[in-house]
Design a protein around this nucleic acid. Structure first.
Lengths: 342, 342
DNA sequence: CTGTTAGCGCGTTCAC
DNA sequence: GTGAACGCGCTAACAG
């Protein structure tokens, strides 16, 4: 079947291609009647404009890309929903792309910028720092959501924006809450990667909290999961290893809610009661934390606010109303049933 | 900054554009040395080919599209992972697109088919039946994953393939298991949509199981969630309404694990013990079911097998080795801790 | 208000 | 092994 093109439509309507183009793109300079006739023929024939050809020509294309590293991670679900809504409000199109674990998000962004005519990019997941230089290759503004800027990296701060919580500070707050409950032997479950990330900041907050409160760090209580911090399986296995190690602990802080839920299950299987025998805390404040049994103590990230602000800031930069900024939202300390005084 | 194109690269290398093209696309007819030189210049300049232009010209483009309705639904995560892997094995490119709730998945597919040069499409989520006719507009094979064909719709069966479990049958099996445990007052939590879907099939299985076992249907025990069957919140609220209604029940069957977890929480909040006072069962067999407290009784869908078979079947059809087929996988009845004999 | 025409950036003939 | 020229389908000038 010969692909039907704009030329074919023009022929059938007895008009020029540009008229058809005008009809498709809701241009003003067109007779309502001819437009109507054209639209009818288009519907009849089932004609669909070729997007590749359009992107090639188009100069304006109000379009924002959202690149998500780990799009299947439920953590991003509420963020994506808000971002979609906000971008639509601005009458912009949205292209949502996932980035594979092995892909470089900036490479994908570069490619996409050429392919579509993007006006801005939002990154979720991945990390901000490593590629700050390369971010400049992008000719359009970039905002990271839920990933804070690196404090030490002043030079590159004007290459991109960030909207996030202060992971180190919130993490410290949570651990200090545990300490306030009387806990001293506090285990942490975190990820062992060396690349700078929110994960490292959360560990940093843990270490700071101990230090401030004069609690010595016990390396045996710092447990590393195998890569993924968003699988219950890893939370389960890591908690099990901790339990089996025989190392004493009265509290377990998992740097994600998902890990914490896995840990809860491991503790239950080992006959350890939460919170009677051990307190458990998570981080993120996902829906899961609210429905787990027992309800999780955690730090809730205000994802809706962060998402809304991300879009707002991006458009401010696009409209030259703002330079790149680094916005911090406070988290909420949710006191669940999974922790108690000792 | 002037966008750098293939012409620019050709100039800098002192070669023709076609030579550069050959270098990029790994063509055979090219001197290894000139190719190497070209690749170096490309790296230096940071040149990135424009995909829109490529798609416009390209004739082959080994590419498969995966359209997911509700990509943020964790249900699809393990499926997407497997599908990606399998498609990569076949040396095909994969374009993963999410379909908005309000979008028609076939429209999106049609558009994408023009834009890229697709060879096949995989649908996840959405429903197979409504658009069987329109599926024929697509000139490439379509396979639905986890969505069974409509038994009544023989005419359109050769317009697409499906790989799934038999939702009605598996649902019936689960309910019969509950009945076998001695339950007679079995509530079901389902969705109230009229469009044919897996959800309806699961309800159908419930009704069949009751009928076969001579249990009268109590309409007050059929509870409908408000739209989304993949939020714990809805499971919670619907269970709460059921509890507050005062209607007696000894078992609660939720047509998704996510709903069941919400229901568990609602029961706990009402001081109702699971499984001592009430048995709870889910459907899907997601990771969540395995880590919830108590562990859920559920039907596990073999998502990895379904995904692998989906890709295999799609390629068989592309390669003309098969016509459209409708493949059924058996589910696993997982006997968790959330149900007990009465 | 409408038609004609020139590219957008690239892959692909077809000569050389 | 390589380069010149053509055209993919469309939008955006421009001329009418």
């Amino acid at each position: 079947m010969a692909e039907i093109t704009i030329v074919e439509i023009a022929k059938r309507c007895g008009v020029g291609v540009s008229t058809v183009s005008r009809a498709i793109n809701n241009h003003s300079d067109i007779n309502p009647e001819t437009k109507k006739r054209i639209m009818e023929v288009i519907k009849e024939t089932g004609y669909i404009p070729n997007n590749s050809a359009r992107n090639l020509k188009r100069t304006d294309a109000k379009c924002i890309a959202v690149l998500v590293k780990g799009i299947t991670n439920p953590f991003f679900a509420p963020m994506i929903a808000v971002v979609e809504e906000e971008i639509e409000k601005m009458k912009y199109a949205l292209v949502l792309r996932h980035v594979e674990a092995y892909e470089d998000e900036v490479d994908v962004a570069l490619e996409l910028e050429k392919e579509k005519r993007l006006r801005g990019i939002i990154f979720m997941g991945g990390n901000a720092r490593q590629s700050a230089d390369r971010l400049r290759q992008l000719n359009i503004p970039v905002v990271f959501a839920t990933i804070g800027s690196d404090i030490a990296d002043d030079l590159n701060k004007n290459a991109y924006s960030t909207v996030s919580v202060d992971d180190a500070k919130e993490s410290r707050r949570l651990v200090e809450y545990l300490i306030g409950l009387g806990h001293k032997k506090i285990a942490i479950m975190t990820e062992g990667s060396e690349t700078p990330s929110v994960v490292q900041l959360r560990l940093k907050g843990y270490l700071e909290a101990l230090k401030i409160n004069g609690i010595e760090v016990n390396d045996n209580l710092i447990r590393y999961v195998d890569k993924q911090i968003y699988t219950m399986h890893n939370g389960y296995e890591t908690a099990r290893a901790l339990i089996e190690s025989g190392e004493e602990f009265t509290a377990l802080y998992c740097i994600s809610d998902v890990l914490a839920v896995g840990a809860l299950r491991a503790l239950a299987d080992a006959g350890i009661r939460v919170p009677e025998d051990v307190s458990v805390a998570g981080f993120d404040g996902q829906e899961l934390a609210e429905y787990s049994i027992p309800r999780l103590t955690t730090i809730r990230q205000p994802l809706a606010d962060i998402s809304r602000e991300t879009v707002r800031l991006l458009f401010d930069i696009i409209d030259k109303k703002s330079y790149h900024r680094h916005i911090i939202f406070p988290g909420d300390l949710i006191k669940g049933e999974s922790t108690r005084e000792i």
